[in-house]
């Protein structure tokens, strides 16, 4: 399904464009962090440590008011003093208000973001392509019916619909055992990774329409192409035509759209987590929400996960640009960020 010419175009574009290289580098970095988080993280991201709470990242220091009580001459005296808090090398990005390591949480957060992004997109592609191809290929009433459903779906902004669905359905999540911990390679890390299941389903439900539109458009245009008429005249069945002709031709635009949608879904997931409509225990959006309450004293808690989101999404968007420039499918961008 990927021709030699396509591969050549991709390589040529990658060679020429510094931005495409940057995109690949960023995505490789985020993927690496997500896969090997248990090995890379210096601490258990869920372990609290009140003694080391609110440590600043390396290169910064803060002051903090501490009250201590002492027995002086048989009386309890409360002393309030300003203490300088310095960064420590064991917490390079600092710690949050209960002493959890920010770097470890950022590394593990990459897992949630990418899992939701990729699984959600895969589900949306599956749903959208089936509906779109059916509508575009059979046209008539089937098409009208399915496209009216799509119109109604599009009448709700995806974030609003997602909030409504998750808010009402609850926040189910699935825990899968972490292979590194199972194999004894990272004994101190959390035993399982938590996938926010409802979120995956909901982001797919609010985003499939974009894929349906593209697949339908491709099916409509290919259906009337002469070689498909020819295939039909020699007795090819609908199923064969869809599989052999329509599907391969839809791959490029859907691939480009899927790339952009992964970025959009990562943003959507972080927004849902930020609002508390998720089920994940380790998520960039969740950390930003928690850090928000400590902006005045500990700016890094909300800042670091945000930088991680921006870098991942910039990387994926750059890859999307690269694919679009190299493959030139001419698709709508679809609904983007939040």
């Amino acid at each position: 399904m990927v021709s030699d010419r396509t591969k050549r175009n991709l390589k040529a574009e990658l060679r020429e464009s510094a931005l495409a290289k940057l995109g690949v580098a960023l995505v490789v970095l985020v993927l690496f962090a997500a896969v090997f988080a248990p090995l890379l993280a210096p601490h258990d991201p869920t372990a609290t440590d009140p003694k080391n709470a609110s440590l600043p990242p390396l290169g910064f220091s803060t002051t903090e008011n501490r009250t201590t009580s002492q027995m002086v001459d048989g009386e309890i005296q409360v002393v309030e003093e300003e203490v300088q808090v310095n960064a420590t090398a064991s917490h390079p990005l600092g710690t949050d208000s209960v002493g959890r390591d920010v770097l470890s949480r950022v590394l593990f957060g990459a897992r949630t973001s990418l899992l939701v992004g990729i699984l959600g997109t895969a589900l949306a592609v599956a749903l959208g392509v089936v509906v779109g191809l059916t509508a575009g290929y059979y046209r008539g009433r089937v098409d009208d019916g399915l496209m009216r459903v799509a119109d109604v779906m599009l009448a709700f902004p995806s974030l609003v619909l997602a909030i409504a669905l998750i808010g009402l359905w609850g926040r189910q999540s699935i825990a899968i055992p972490d292979p590194f911990v199972r194999l004894g390679l990272a004994p101190e890390m959390p035993e399982s990774a938590v996938i926010p299941g409802t979120v995956v389903v909901v982001v797919a439900l609010v985003n499939w329409v974009w894929f349906a539109r593209v697949a339908r458009g491709e099916a409509l245009s290919i259906r009337s192409a002469e070689y498909v008429t020819a295939a039909r005249s020699i007795g090819a069945s609908d199923r064969t035509i869809i599989r052999e002709h329509v599907l391969p031709n839809s791959v490029t635009p859907i691939l480009v759209l899927a790339t952009i949608q992964i970025a959009a879904i990562i943003l959507l997931e972080s927004a849902l987590s930020f609002l508390g409509f998720s089920g994940a225990n380790l998520s960039w959006g969740l950390d930003i929400a928690q850090g928000r309450d400590y902006l005045a004293s500990s700016w890094w808690i909300a800042t670091m996960p945000g930088i991680a989101i921006v870098l991942s999404v910039v990387g994926i968007n750059l890859i999307g640009d690269w694919l679009r420039d190299a493959l030139d499918p001419g698709v709508d961008q679809g609904e983007g960020g939040v």
Binding site: F274, A302, G306, I309, V310, V314, L318, V338
Partner: peptide, 22 residues
């Protein structure tokens, strides 16, 4: 424009609060 379309706006809002307000 690249960074702008890649930044979650709730985080941007918090950063604006951090810098401009706090």
């Amino acid at each position: 424009s690249l960074v702008g379309i890649s930044t979650p706006n709730f985080w941007l809002g918090i950063m604006l609060i951090l810098v401009a307000a706090v």
